[in-house]
């Protein structure tokens, strides 16, 4: 029953609209808008909750209580924080490059929203199922570098500039392992369409067939979305707050929310590519597929938080060395092994 909750709702709406003799184009646009609003709401609420969850998890690890004032168990803490940042003045320092400076926080939030276009949330729940979904993900993610660079360069602050330079170096280096790890999955699934990749994991998840690829992807995505141990871009104790240093009020809040949304996308991508997406394990289909998706996503998020609250920050040269001298060769070897394995598998089958 829960399984078709959202799909059924969309279907019902469509029949209702059609029965009321709306133009087909109006129906399509209306449903698309509804999907966008739904995704945006999911994204925003989740980001708000994630910030709360991250703080709470950190508190548990450190034998603290964490946020506990606003709402029951402090659940509305981030809402209150965001409201507070809304009310604050957006302070623009002297001699900033005005347009890039003001544009960057807006653009940074559009990227994660764009990424959600191709994510399969559940059975038949894809906003738009692109043929080249994987390529789209990679391409859109790397745009974030430019936005961070805009923020860092236009801020007229050396700390921001350093952070921006770090972000460029980091994103460029970790793009490679990410793509190669994705490539091994694409090879297994034989398609770049995300729904096909999920469907290919119906029986066996790719984490079991691609353990090395999973590890590489897990680490590289962490680096790509700048979480400890790879949080050099922000690097609070070194460069204050990196590209975000000069931002205040809602501009800063947008950066902050975008960071957590990106983090969520990292977890979603790990789920989709390696943990079977919305597929239910052990045939437990009594839990609807979209709920499975969220459960898996939060499992991955918890794993990331666990590493975040345990490790310390890596140094810039070590980070680059790790990407180019370790992750990249290993991922290349992994692709080679995958290719040979697939070839042998087909030879035996046929």
């Amino acid at each position: 029953m829960g399984e078709n909750l959202f799909v059924g709702m969309a279907k019902g709406l469509r029949t209702w609209l059609e029965s009321n003799h709306f133009l087909p184009i109006v129906t399509d646009v209306f449903l698309m808008l509804l999907a966008v609003v739904g995704v945006l709401g999911f994204l925003f609420l989740n980001a708000l909750f994630l910030i709360y969850y991250d703080r709470k998890f950190g508190a548990w690890v450190q034998a603290r209580l964490g946020p506990n004032r606003v709402g029951p168990r402090g659940i509305f803490q981030t809402v209150a924080d965001t409201l507070k940042l809304f009310a604050k003045e957006i302070f623009i320092p002297n001699n900033v490059d005005r347009w890039p400076y003001l544009l960057a926080p807006v653009l940074i939030f559009t990227i994660p929203v764009m990424l959600f276009l191709v994510i399969p949330f559940g059975k038949g729940m894809v906003p738009y199922d692109l043929n080249l979904g994987v390529l789209y993900l990679v391409a859109v993610t790397s745009v974030e570098t430019i936005v961070l660079w805009m923020a860092g360069w236009s801020s007229n602050n050396k700390y921001s500039l350093l952070g921006a330079m770090r972000s460029v170096a980091q994103m460029l280096s970790y793009e490679m392992p990410v793509i190669f790890a994705m490539l091994s999955v694409v090879m297994m699934a034989g398609s770049m369409k995300l729904s096909d990749i999920v469907a290919a994991q119906q029986k066996v998840w790719f984490i079991f067939l691609q353990p090395v690829g999973f590890l590489i992807y897990f680490i590289a995505v962490n680096a790509e979305f700048k979480r400890t141990p790879f949080d050099l871009v922000e690097g609070e104790s070194e460069i204050i707050s990196g590209p975000y240093t000069e931002y205040s009020g809602m501009n800063f809040a947008l950066f902050f929310l975008a960071e957590y949304t990106n983090f969520m996308i990292g977890a979603i991508m790990v789920t989709t590519l390696f943990l079977g997406g919305w597929n239910a394990p052990f045939g437990w289909t009594f839990i609807p597929s979209w709920l499975w998706f969220i459960i898996k996503m939060y499992f991955v998020i918890t794993l990331y938080m666990w590493t975040r609250w345990t490790f310390l920050r890596i140094r810039i040269d070590q980070m680059l060395n790790f990407a180019w001298k370790f992750l990249l060769p290993v991922s290349l070897v992994n692709i080679f092994v995958t290719g040979v394995g697939l070839y042998l598998y087909r030879m035996i089958r046929w």
């Binding site: 950190g58 603290r64 400890t228 949080d231 609070e236 104790s237 310390l312």
Partner: peptide, 9 residues
């Protein structure tokens, strides 16, 4: 200073 909040706590 090296980025580990837990090692600080």
């Amino acid at each position: 200073d090296m980025g580990s909040y837990t090692g600080w706590m």
